[in-house]
Amino acid sequence: MTTGPTPPTTPPETTIRSQDWYATDLSGRHYSRHAFIDVDLTESTGRGAVFDQCTFRGVRFNVSRHSGSAFTNCTFSHCVFFDTHFSDCKLTGSLFEQCSFSLFEVTGGDWSFVGLPGADLRRASLTGVRMREADFTGARLEEATLTDVDLSGAQLHSANFIRCDLQGSDLSSLDPLTVQLGQATISLEQAAVLMTAMGVNVV
């Protein structure tokens, strides 16, 4: 049974508040149990950075690029992800609350157990990402791209996949009776999986 992500349960040891980190290179930095409040990370970059059990509140990640970095067991609250790219990053166990996503892109990496309930991910691009047991309950994914994504064990109830490209993704946890799939793009193999979930014998 999926229990969802586990955000930090201990208070942060250090708080960084209202700092201008515009275009900062975060490569190789390591933060544990830090709280980032109203920090501007616009156009920041980072390769191999590590954030563990950190809290991000009101942080602007606009036009930032993160590669091979880790944001594990973190909480993102009221953050802005405009034209933000994550490549081969690890975000296991992290939770997103009331964040905004525009031109959002994730390529590769491990986002298992991530919480994105109710997230507005319209037109987002998620490709080749491991998202096992992720929580997409009530998420909006209209016209999004979710190709070759491992969604095994994911919570997808009430999610909106209208006109979403789902080709190559694991849809074994998707109940077509509890989501919106109008005009979504899937393969014949995926269609057979969905039909089986509906109790139809595919021969």
Rank of each mutant, 00 (worst) to 15 (best):
A119I: 05
V129T: 12
F82H: 13
D38L: 07
C54R: 05
D40L: 06
R132P: 05
V59Q: 05
R122I: 15
R132H: 08
D38R: 09
R130Y: 12
S125K: 10
F113V: 14
G118P: 13
V114Q: 05
E133G: 02
S77C: 04
G108F: 02
R123E: 12
D120E: 13
R132W: 11
G115D: 15
V63W: 06
F101V: 00
E133R: 03
G115K: 00
R65P: 03
E43N: 15
R130N: 09
R130L: 10
F51T: 05
V59H: 09
G48V: 00
F71V: 01
R57V: 08
G68T: 03
F113H: 07
A70H: 07
F136N: 00
S100R: 11
A70K: 08
N62I: 02
F104C: 02
T84A: 12
F86I: 01
E133H: 09
D52V: 06
S44Y: 00
Q98H: 12
L121I: 06
F86R: 00
F71G: 07
S87A: 06
T72W: 02
A124S: 15
D135S: 06
F71Y: 15
A134K: 00
L121M: 08
V80S: 14
G118V: 06
V50Q: 11
N62V: 04
S94I: 09
L126D: 07
S125V: 15
G108T: 10
V114N: 06
A49W: 03
T84G: 12
A119H: 14
D40N: 14
D88S: 11
V63L: 04
G46S: 07
D83W: 09
L126G: 10
S112C: 09
D52S: 13
F71N: 05
R65H: 06
R122G: 14
R122S: 13
R130G: 02
F76M: 00
Q53E: 15
F61C: 02
F86W: 10
W111M: 05
S112Y: 13
K90Q: 14
L95P: 01
V59L: 02
S67Y: 15
V63F: 05
M131N: 03
S87V: 02
F86P: 02
I37T: 10
G109Q: 09
S44A: 15
N62M: 04
T92I: 09
F136M: 02
H85Q: 08
R123L: 09
Q98C: 08
G108C: 11
W111Q: 01
M131A: 12
V106Q: 10
T55L: 13
V129G: 05
S64W: 01
S100P: 11
P117T: 13
C89P: 05
Q98E: 13
V59R: 04
F61M: 01
C89L: 00
S125P: 06
C99K: 08
I37R: 09
F136K: 00
V80N: 12
T75L: 13
D40G: 06
G48Q: 03
F96E: 01
R122H: 14
H66S: 07
G46Y: 00
G48M: 01
T45I: 01
T75G: 10
F82E: 13
G48D: 05
V106M: 13
S77N: 12
